[in-house]
Design a protein around this nucleic acid. Structure first.
Length: 644
RNA sequence: GCCGACUUAGCUUAGUUGGCAGAGCAACUCAUUCGUAAUGAGUAGGUCGUAGGUUCGACUCCUAUAGUCGGCACCA
């Protein structure tokens, strides 16, 4: 049989071993819009039909799609192994995911152990060696219900399918699964894999349902690829902000305050640099900066609607017999500031910025280092403007976001979330108009964006900013949200040019999101090797012999401090190599070694983090260089090329 | 909150069927005074997360509880 590829190339299917099955499988694939494959020495080249006329294109094994198909088949292989090892096991769903696959299984109350994963893996290897063909079959709904009558989960899924459509099932050996496909042609494709974690997961993702046992794994086309992915995980572990935070003395947690982080001297120094810079930029962008109280009365939260909609997540208290709540958001405070005086259209846009400390009672199981905490500081702002000013405001904001993210070398993408299907407030017309304004502002400032239909908040559409760190992980940090709710509830107004009261447009926006989380993200992004402008300690001075060079070294420290640098000296009576190592481990940007040579000439010898070169320059040149590096907010090292 | 795992010195950790809790790093002391990733010797440091229980005897087994971690759900 001959396959025609997209580029016109033809491929002959050889009549080798199992030639019949191969032809059968390809014929099926053609008919069912599934995948076909090439039978020769490279068994794992996958093809997909690009039209109904038998043309195929190559999906290289490097492509995400091939990886996806392989992992989906690995999920089936695992399910087959489980069905053989655990009689009566029932199966939920088992899809491929971005970095592997999982299957949700019901083992009748049996608690799966780590050792069981090994057993399942061995069974999978055995089945892989058997090289069972993965055959697709289309059956009627009745037939499908009959086939899966012993599995209530599959049954439930089948019942929801269109009775007039045929239902596809995939079979390999004794194992049969309800599945859309596609799959690799036979089990031997799934050769390099690993099962890594066992977790609980609600059936159909609903916490009202029973929890099934979810087993996660990963499959690759080669041993090397599998090892590479394992290594990436190892690297991520080394960058873990909880580990680095401890090593560098950035922050700590205490069992006396689960989810409430403590900032340690180094962590606070880092944070102060970012805060100072944030304040400075917001002054430049004509924000009015405020600080509003953490505790405010119940009535305020009733007016804002938080008491009714968000009460479970709010910390409440009583003061002098009156109910209060600790703010979970800064908006009402900012609105009180806005409403504290009468505004004219000349005042707008009014940008009220606040580094606001909020508390939210997050579920205990949601807590995660600095990524998910119960108290955090949002880099918040509430912008009050007229309808006409909206587009310009958004464009300015997009420029501001660019400026801030680029300092950290973080790429980002924008997602526009639009009107929910139901339970939203505001006129459809205003929704449409503001969605268009958000989209236009992105386009006008040259930003691509994706649309997430129906994912807007009930009170307005929003732009979300997804940051990508050096390991390719995505973090949602920034957001710009239009709010049609609170200005109404709090009766915010301004006097327009005709002397009439008018309702301003209100935007919520945060760039970093929360300081805590953002510091967690950049700690992992930089693996603790922060750019010199925000590094807790910028320079470490090491006298070769503290008795001989200590005095000179201390004078040098004073001079550097006078220049505003964050400097420490290590004049302990240890060998230079030992003290040098300690400074490198702490990821201090510059190490100055002071010995006879330096004392004589007055020059300094520095070693920059990430290099081993010793560079001798005059003190003035060194100071000038560091100042430039701080002012330009240069990265210390390429975060991707760090030796960890 | 739910499922599961984990919790041993400041940190990283060993501890085999229940029988005196062991190490490396850090700290401290002494010697060493040294030019780019760990000088050597010694000292001290533990109610084995917490509270109960079983047992002649519990770090080890059981129950409860707290915290952490991996997921799920949540993130108006």
């Amino acid at each position: 049989m001959e396959l025609i590829l997209k580029d016109g190339k033809k491929i002959e299917v050889e009549n080798g071993k199992n030639g019949h099955d191969v032809a059968l499988s390809i014929a099926e694939s053609l008919a069912k819009n599934s995948i076909a494959y090439k039978l020769n020495d490279k068994l794992y080249d996958l093809y997909r039909p690009i039209s109904g006329d038998g043309a195929f294109e190559l999906i290289t094994k490097e492509s995400p799609e091939a990886f996806h198909i392989l992992n989906h088949s690995a999920a089936h292989l695992m399910a087959e192994a489980i069905s053989l090892l655990f009689k009566g096991a029932k199966f939920g769903v088992g899809p491929a995911i971005e970095d592997g696959f999982y299957y949700d299984v019901d083992l009748n109350g049996y608690v799966l152990k780590e050792e069981d994963l090994k057993k399942i893996e061995s069974k999978m290897k055995e089945l892989s060696k058997k090289n069972e063909y993965i055959i697709r079959e289309d059956v009627s709904k009745e037939k499908a219900l009959e086939l899966f009558k012993d599995d209530e989960y599959k049954e439930e899924l089948i019942k929801e399918l269109d009775p007039n459509e045929e239902i596809s099932v995939y079979k390999q050996g004794s194992y049969l699964d309800l599945c859309l496909g596609p799959h690799v042609p036979s089990t031997s494709f799934v050769k390099f894999f690993k099962l890594d974690t066992i977790a609980g997961a609600y059936w159909r993702g609903d916490s009202k349902n029973k929890q099934l046992t979810r087993i996660y794994g990963i499959a690759c086309f080669s041993k090397e690829e599998l090892e590479r992915r394992e290594q990436l995980k190892e690297e991520a572990k080394k960058r873990d902000h909880r580990k680095i935070g401890k090593e560098l003395g950035l922050f700590m947690m205490s069992e006396y305050g689960p989810g409430f982080p403590f900032f340690l001297p180094n962590g606070l120094m880092l944070r102060r640099q970012i805060e100072n810079w944030w304040y400075k930029i917001h002054d430049e962008y004509n924000y009015k900066l405020i600080k509003t109280p953490i505790i405010l009365s119940k009535e305020l939260w009733l007016t804002s609607g938080h008491w009714d909609h968000y009460k479970e997540n709010m910390y409440t208290t009583k003061i002098d017999e009156r109910d209060f709540a600790i703010k979970p958001m800064n908006c009402p405070g900012a609105i009180l500031v806005y409403n504290s005086e009468l505004h004219s259209y000349h005042d707008l846009p009014l940008r009220l910025g606040e580094l606001g400390l909020v508390h939210r009672h997050e579920a205990s199981g949601a807590l995660n280092g600095l990524f998910r905490v119960r108290c955090f500081t949002q880099d918040d702002a509430h912008i009050f403007c007229t309808r006409e000013q909206l587009k310009g405001e958004i464009e300015t904001l997009l420029g501001l976001y660019d400026k801030i993210y680029s300092v950290f070398g973080l790429d980002y993408s924008i997602v526009l979330s639009t009107k929910p299907e139901k339970d939203y407030i505001g006129d459809d017309e205003i929704w449409a108009e503001s969605e268009a304004i958000l989209a236009d502002a992105c386009k006008a400032s040259g930003h691509d964006f994706k649309i997430n239909p129906g994912d807007g908040a009930f009170y307005g559409p929003k732009l979300d900013f997804k940051l990508k760190d050096c390991m390719g992980r995505i973090w949602q940090c920034g957001t710009i949200q239009l709010d049609m709710n609170l200005p109404e509830r709090f009766d915010c107004t301004y006097i327009n040019s005709k002397g009439e009261k008018e309702r301003p447009i209100m935007l919520h926006r945060a760039i970093l999101g929360s300081f805590e989380r953002f510091i967690g993200i950049i700690t992992e992004h930089f693996a603790g090797a922060f750019p010199i402008w925000c590094a807790p300690v910028q320079i470490k001075v090491l006298p070769v012999n503290s008795q001989v060079h200590g005095k000179f070294a201390n004078e040098l420290v004073s001079k550097l401090k006078e220049n505003g640098f964050r400097v420490e000296i290590d004049d302990s009576e240890e060998k230079l190599g030992y003290r040098l190592r300690n400074s490198v481990i702490k990821k201090i940007p510059y190490i100055l070694v002071i010995g006879d040579k330096e004392v004589e000439t007055g020059n300094v010898t520095y070693r920059k983090y990430g290099t081993e070169k010793q560079i001798n320059v005059s003190l003035d040149d060194f100071i000038k260089m560091i100042k430039e590096e701080i002012d330009s907010k240069a990265l210390l090292v390429d975060p991707k090329n760090l030796k960890l």
